[in-house]
Write a protein that binds this DNA or RNA. Structure first.
Length: 864
RNA sequence: GCGAAAGUGGCGGAACUGGCAGACGCACUGGACUUAGGAUCCAGCGAGGCAACUCAUAGGGGUUCGACUCCCCUCUUUCGCACCA
């Protein structure tokens, strides 16, 4: 021990390959679909096959693998599957860049990634591997689409989207830069396009319920709650005045018969207490009423021009909070149901058609936006709420002096029968009054919008629909599923959706009437694919249904999900929606897909997110080749707690490598010594243990305890690893092995062999290698670490016979006291007062009281 | 603006229910051994002070025998949502 000879690096490459081979040969990572054992399903978000594992993947799967292996040790029937999220724009663009077809490049990338996964040595059941771009997978995505359609959860409607004429596709908001297409730089315009939607809003209320999860980060729950954005308020009907004042050409059609549905403007408000302060009505140009009115406008009308301008503004600019509020008066009026006031109707750029009822009552005195708008266009401002302790003074002068709206609640003024009532109470009273009059009702709205899943893209799951002139939308029969993507297309920069030009594929007979019809050419958003993949893993080879319900009952929900925070309001919400839908059609019997969620932090370089454009990327492969998978895995877990961002450090990796190296050489050098201590001597010599070994034994069991409890609770692997290093340092400090008694040698060996067992979760290859030095293959069967069960400690060894008390005077540490455990409080006080330094400090002062905290410290309080 | 999280040495981070602030690792410094290398071993490592001690957990108050931890205020950073009526 401790000699100064040169040491070669440990042969990690050989060791890692060796154990990967053994694990595979003996199928130790395969999960059984039917088992008496309790199951544990560990899942990491699957990767998009970009051609190489990046450091984020390595971090994600290292966390998952630690949990997975712990559950294996605990004896669970553990499942950790892996697959690829292979459809979508990045894959399509990758193919375009390489002048190839995405089906080719994707499968190539999958191959590369698979071999990288193998080299990392994750405990993955590869028999269940899937890729979303294979017909065997997306067949069932299409099947689920149909089920959803049949349940009324799928619909088509025209909606306003960002459209690039050059690329002939919808652009997501983040693909529009400065009103221009990110790819071809041409002007983006708003276009009304027929799109497919999933009615996720039907589940809005249930999606707000997180009670069925065991452990989800507060942050994610808050983000989803925020995103769903439930608001309770009141819907109010404003009657239109049909022969409006400004109209000059009073044609009978316009003035008399109004369609019933259009004779009112419905608004939603969370502040019915301000209803008496309404001085205008704000509608977006897309509002059906406006659309109707515009038909009667002359071509050069200002109103028409204004509407066109607003509609063509890109969504982001238009909905930004700091965009100047603009509007135009329609010349028409409606009636405020609470007081009969005539209210001007304006078209504005700041009201959103797809929230609430798509119309807003303008209360300039009590809403900042309305206030700014009213100021600009000289619309009257009427105060109807005053702060509780103030009097309403001269109304008129007040309004002119106002610098901003009073948006808080208060006491109602100028409010008819509700005069003097508190906002809080008046809300329900006014709503009640409206209900009785039939011109309003309580209402709940959500910010959550239905999920638009149409993509005018080639590389995605085809929507299994055929359009027939006579029959309309016809679902592709089950027997014709999957609707496979045609392969004979050229993807390229210039072209529109390549599917549009595959005549052979598009033109099909209508399944109902056999007349010629056309296939839907939109494909599905890739988030549809990832919304149910966790369920497909449990029976991924099934050719007759998405998965067997009985197997799903065993495996679902996922016990532990690990992924990035970036999916909080997208993937994680969509997957919850899908799971609930699958429950409602009887496929699964649980309410939530993911019981526990760990959202891991990013790996940063120099404090920034790694990105190609910044040029601060790290290729993990480089480090894996040089220091081994065990080292890299250990580093990403040691650098910070899993949910925190971690800074990539080359030196840190080397530090982990050194630790593993030291460990390996320690066991090589002390192999014989440890072997001698492996058997508990028959004679119990506990009493004769020297203090050093007693401390080591304490270290062993305390380290195990810390690691065990951490896995049962907060899962901060960085401190676990630190504690293993610390314990190894303690073990290394024993230099007098030769002098030890048999029982001391036993505890020495125990201390040593604890290390591979604890480290197995983070650096499994080396751990197995060390373990096998002592518990090596007896026959054909290997003794894998997990088979030895989970690590456990003996609480008896954590009881010390001497304890160090810290002695404080007025809160400052003045000494310490090593004392027998069983000593009484009085004696401890006495002993504390006898410490030299304590004596000196309290000399000439009066001791007011002495507090003894059991097993920890003595606090002496002096009178000042 | 709303919501969430966070702020501790040169750095990543420990300190779990209030009880020795800085575990573990990196970097650094000195030494040993070295045909020198990303090797190994020993020692040191918050600041000030010869020392006893003092000062330090973003800043300021408070509760307490005792506060990184609890309460109040302020500042800063990151993230999410954002004209949501």
């Amino acid at each position: 021990m401790g000699d100064n000879k040169k040491k070669p690096e440990y042969p990690f490459m050989e060791i890692e390959r060796k154990w990967q081979k053994k694990w595979e040969e003996q199928g130790v990572h395969k999960a059984k679909n039917y088992s008496d054992k309790k199951k544990y399903y560990v899942l990491s978000m699957f990767p998009y096959p970009s051609g190489a594992l990046h450091i984020g993947h390595v971090s994600n799967y290292s966390i998952a693998d630690a949990i997975a292996r712990f559950k294996m040790m605990e004896g669970y029937n553990m499942l950790q599957p892996m697959g690829y999220d292979a459809f979508g724009m990045p894959a399509e663009n990758f193919a375009i860049l390489n002048n190839s077809h995405p089906s080719i490049t994707t499968e190539e990338n999958i191959k590369t990634m698979y071999s990288q996964f193998k080299a990392m040595g994750f405990a993955i059941d590869w028999d269940r591997e899937l890729s979303t771009c294979r017909p065997s997978y997306y067949k069932w995505g299409q099947w689920l689409f149909k089920k959803m359609y049949e349940k009324g959860l799928v619909y088509r409607k025209t909606s306003w989207i960002n459209w690039c004429d050059d690329c002939q596709t919808v652009l997501a908001n983040e693909q529009v830069e400065d009103q221009k297409c990110w790819r071809c730089d041409s002007q983006v315009r708003q276009k009304e396009l027929m799109q497919w939607f999933f009615r996720i809003t039907d589940y809005a209320e249930e999606l707000l319920d997180f009670s069925k999860m065991i452990d989800w980060p507060e942050r994610v729950k808050a983000m989803q709650t925020n995103w769903i954005g439930k608001s309770q308020g009141t819907e109010v009907d404003f009657l239109l005045i049909s022969n409006h004042k400004s109209q000059t050409n009073n044609s009978p059609e316009n003035t008399q018969v109004q369609e019933v549905g259009k004779s009112i403007i419905k608004i939603f408000t969370t502040r019915p207490d301000t209803l008496f302060g309404v001085t205008f009505m704000a509608l977006p140009p897309e509002h059906p009423l406006i659309v109707e009115w515009l038909k009667h406008e002359p071509e050069d009308s200002e109103i028409l021009k204004f509407c066109e301008k607003v509609i063509n503004e890109d969504k982001i600019t238009r909905t930004a909070a700091d965009t100047t509020k603009e509007g135009i008066f329609t010349g028409r009026y409606c009636i405020n149901p609470v007081n009969g006031d005539e209210v001007q109707i304006w078209i504005t750029n700041y009201v959103l058609m797809d929230y609430g009822t798509g119309a807003v009552m303008g209360v300039p005195a009590h809403d900042q936006r309305d206030f700014e708008f009213a100021k600009k266009y000289h619309i009257p401002i009427k105060i109807v709420i005053i702060p509780e302790n103030e009097q309403l003074s001269d109304n008129q002068s007040d309004c002119n002096e106002l610098k901003s709206a009073y948006i808080d609640e208060g006491i109602l003024a100028n409010s008819g029968d509700f005069e003097g009532m508190k906002s809080e109470l008046s809300k329900s009273k006014i709503t009640e009054w409206l209900l009785n009059k039939g011109s309003g009702r309580a209402s709940t709205t959500y910010r959550l919008r239905d999920w638009g899943i149409s993509r005018q893209r080639y590389w995605g799951t085809p929507i299994p629909v055929i359009h027939c002139d006579d029959c309309g939308v016809v679902l592709v029969p089950d027997s014709d599923l999957p609707v496979e993507l045609p392969m004979e297309v050229q993807v390229g920069k210039t072209t529109k959706n390549p599917l549009l030009s595959v005549e052979k594929w598009i033109n099909v007979p209508c399944p109902k009437c056999q007349k010629s019809a056309k296939r839907e050419t939109d494909t599905m958003d890739t988030f549809v694919d990832s919304s149910w993949y966790f369920a497909r893993y449990i029976d991924s080879k099934n050719q007759n249904k998405p998965f067997e319900e009985e197997i799903a009952d065993y495996w679902l929900p996922v016990d532990q999900y690990i992924g990035g925070i970036e999916h909080a309001c997208m993937h994680l919400l969509y997957a919850r929606f899908f799971h609930k839908f699958m429950r409602d059609i009887g496929l699964v019997n649980s309410d939530e897909p993911f019981l526990r969620l760990l959202s891991q932090g990013m790996v940063l370089k120099d404090g920034f997110k790694m990105s190609k454009s910044k040029g601060n990327t790290v290729d993990p492969q480089e480090f894996i080749d040089r220091y081994g998978a065990d080292t890299v895995r250990l580093f990403v877990l040691f650098a910070a707690p899993p949910e925190k961002d971690k800074e990539w450090s080359k030196e840190g990796v080397v530090g982990c490598f050194r630790f593993l190296n030291r460990l390996y050489h320690f066991f090589k050098e002390n192999e014989d010594a440890i072997k001698k201590g492996m058997k508990m001597p028959s004679k119990n010599e506990n009493d004769t243990l020297n203090t050093e070994i007693k401390k080591l034994r304490y270290s062993t069991h305390n380290t195990i305890k810390r690691n065990l409890e951490d896995f049962q609770g907060r899962m901060q692997f960085n401190t676990n690893i630190a504690s293993i290093m610390e314990h190894f340092n303690n073990l290394n400090a024993i230099k007098n092995y030769a002098d030890l008694s048999d029982i001391e040698k036993y505890y020495y060996a125990e201390a040593a062999l604890t290390i591979p067992k604890l480290l197995y979760l983070y650096s499994p290859h080396l751990s197995e290698e060390i373990w096998s030095m002592f518990y090596g293959s007896c026959s054909e069967k290997e003794n894998f670490i997990f088979q030895s069960g989970v690590f456990d400690y003996n609480p008896e060894f954590l009881v010390l016979d001497k304890i160090v008390y810290v002695v404080q005077i007025n809160g400052k540490v003045r000494g310490r006291l090593e004392i027998d455990v069983n000593i009484s409080e009085e004696e401890i006080k006495k002993a504390a007062l006898e410490i030299e330094n304590v004596k000196k400090t309290i000399e000439g002062k009066i001791v007011e009281k002495i507090i003894v905290v059991g097993g920890k410290l003595v606090s002496i309080v002096l009178r000042n």
